[in-house]
Amino acid sequence: MATHAQLSGPFALGTFADGDGAPFPGLVAGGSVLDLRGRPALGSPATTRDLLERWDEVLPVLHDLAARTDGARRPVAELRTLAPVEPRQLLQSGANYRRHVVDLAVAHRPADDPRTVEQARAEIGAMMDRRAAEDQPYVFIGLPSSITGPYDDVVLPHWCTKPDWELELAAVIGAPAYRVTPEQALAHVAAYTIANDLTARELVFRRDMPEIGTDWLRCKNAPGFTPLGPYLVPAAFVADPADLRVTLKLNGETMQDESTADMLFGVARMVSYASQTTRLLPGDLVLTGSPAGNGMHWGRFLADGDVMDGTITGLGAQRTRCVRESA
């Protein structure tokens, strides 16, 4: 069931379906949806990615459509809300919130670590400050097949013993970006949305081959491990992506509640860094990392029947229920 939170700006974009019908791109304004298919002024889009491909051209048209009262509009509640975009590439950020990394590193300390908790926190915090000064974000790739809708059930695989939540701000690429500077990067971001980057926490590190390090395939990419949306909120409506509140509640109890100001690397630096290696394409997602307050910190992981409510300032809200897969 959809949940609602205030959106920044006069409209947003989403992907919807009428029951089991074909998905379609829709303009969301005032609690209603305008079907955008077959509109020549928008290039007759079939998907939201089609709109992102021509973002600078279609944005003024979307403003005009949002301001008009004509056209057949449907209440959001009558439609199924799907993931708002299907990206070709999914780039994810690790270790990008200072307090989150310090908390995780302390929780992952070996049992024979001679440092006190205070000493460990101070040393790890100093390491994070060096990373920020050296301008080295940590980016890895995910699979778009992990994406699911903002209100869909999340299936916890039978083999996953420590499923964890990670609510994140996601930047949505509009104009292709390749080797752009941080000063240029935000001009390539069309919109923002909400992502919950779930993690099988027990599988992050390859304990059988520690020299290889992390196993992102296994720990991040189960089907449905990236609930996305509900909507794409145009970047022009987000005054400052470094001043948004990221909040996740588990069964009504607040677990994450942090400002994006705690990010080591902001959106511009993340997009620029990723673009130095790969050509970012319209519809691609750059996830910016998770703030403090994950299950690893609380010593409590997701279980059958749990309900996660995630919000980010001005971007709406998602609600997902966890369902444990049978062995």
Results as ranks from 00 to 15, higher is better:
38 G>W: 01
93 S>G: 09
123 E>Y: 07
281 L>R: 13
37 R>T: 12
206 R>G: 00
25 P>G: 06
109 R>D: 06
161 T>D: 15
46 A>Y: 01
12 A>T: 14
149 G>H: 03
123 E>V: 11
201 R>P: 01
156 L>F: 03
168 E>T: 13
131 R>F: 15
299 G>V: 07
184 Q>R: 13
159 W>G: 13
73 R>E: 09
209 M>V: 13
121 R>K: 11
280 L>E: 03
140 F>V: 10
17 A>V: 14
153 D>T: 10
36 L>D: 03
201 R>D: 06
138 Y>D: 15
182 P>D: 12
233 V>M: 10
121 R>L: 02
148 T>P: 02
308 M>Q: 07
325 E>V: 00
174 G>Y: 03
238 V>R: 05
188 H>W: 02
221 N>R: 00
235 A>I: 09
109 R>M: 06
96 N>Q: 06
116 T>L: 05
117 V>D: 15
212 I>H: 13
309 D>V: 13
221 N>G: 00
107 A>G: 07
130 R>I: 14
301 F>A: 01
76 V>L: 06
168 E>R: 09
20 D>A: 15
169 L>E: 10
171 A>Y: 02
21 G>D: 12
197 D>I: 04
269 R>Q: 15
83 A>F: 03
109 R>P: 04
233 V>A: 10
267 V>Y: 03
319 R>D: 08
127 M>I: 13
99 R>M: 02
286 V>T: 04
32 S>W: 08
18 D>T: 15
220 K>L: 01
263 M>L: 15
252 G>H: 01
151 Y>F: 12
125 G>N: 09
2 A>S: 12
14 G>E: 12
128 M>I: 11
143 L>D: 10
257 D>F: 11
287 L>I: 14
9 G>E: 07
21 G>C: 12
96 N>F: 05
113 D>I: 09
26 G>L: 08
317 A>S: 09
87 P>H: 07
38 G>S: 06
296 M>Y: 01
318 Q>P: 01
229 G>A: 08
231 Y>V: 15
294 N>Q: 12
98 R>W: 09
299 G>R: 03
257 D>E: 12
299 G>L: 05
292 A>M: 08
37 R>M: 02
194 I>T: 06
142 G>L: 02
163 P>E: 07
40 P>W: 01
294 N>W: 00
51 L>W: 10
235 A>T: 07
240 D>W: 07
108 H>P: 00
88 R>I: 00
137 P>I: 08
